[in-house]
Design a binder for these strands. Sequence first.
DNA 1: CCTTGAACCTATAGTTACTACAGGTTCTAT
DNA 2: ATAGAACCTGTAGTAACTATAGGTTCAAGG
Lengths: 138, 138
Amino acid sequence: MNSQKYSIGQLAKASGCKVETVHYYEKIGLMPEPSRTVGGHRVYALSHIKRLNFIRRSRDLGFKIEQIKDLLKFIDEPDHYCGEVKAMAMQQARVVQEKIDDLQRLQLALNEMVNQCKGSNYSIDDCPIVDALFTNKS
Amino acid sequence: MNSQKYSIGQLAKASGCKVETVHYYEKIGLMPEPSRTVGGHRVYALSHIKRLNFIRRSRDLGFKIEQIKDLLKFIDEPDHYCGEVKAMAMQQARVVQEKIDDLQRLQLALNEMVNQCKGSNYSIDDCPIVDALFTNKS
DNA sequence: CCTTGAACCTATAGTTACTACAGGTTCTAT
DNA sequence: ATAGAACCTGTAGTAACTATAGGTTCAAGG
């Protein structure tokens, strides 16, 4: 059986985050309080590495901490079903699509401004970008 | 001439932000300290409305407060040129494009996960979404 | 003129998801 | 035994606001 032990530094490295972040996840209850050495250093097992990877991957996908708590609840508690997880993933996909749409609108506006502008050494008083920023949205 | 005066509430309403936000902008030096009534209430002129609109529009376009400070410096100080503003706008367009690219990658990953998942009442132990989240990136 | 209630004032704490210290202790390798 | 890396706790800082508390001023109606 695998009963390999890991220090917090090894755990952090394995999951690509900082030691302080692990402390933080423990404080907010995402990571459990692990056992300790006699001197007080945290000691982790492989399951902790998996759990931290789950958290980091979820964060990378844009899930918020509170959502990850929910996801972990599904996993930690018995009697939960795949459908609940799928629903959260779909909701997240919708949120991400909205962000993309927003940013694309924004990109359009920026590019329009930039294309209007001759740039170089014109006085700022004639800058169409400054103009656009000063003008009210209709 | 236009010497209309505005309260902070009118200013905020005209620019679509909250009174507290105006306080905040004043505290961090984005908005100037305006004159006051005898009783201590802030009194604004039209130029303040324009400036606050500039700030809000820039924020909407994703500029950070520090960048807006730079933009306002260009405008407030003499001897600045349109090219400086254009360069910042172009830089901002690049940053936005990167964010869009990131989110689209993320969207792809989420949709793949969701499509793999049959959902409904399957046990969470067989959920391909949970699986994907537990698996290390290659 | 007086009152009432909306709008204003200042100052401080809370939000999100960490990151960065400071000042001390433990572990590991030589 | 000792040096130095890694660890410990606790607190403060980040960005850009938002929210609250507890008090004052303003404008309108009677």
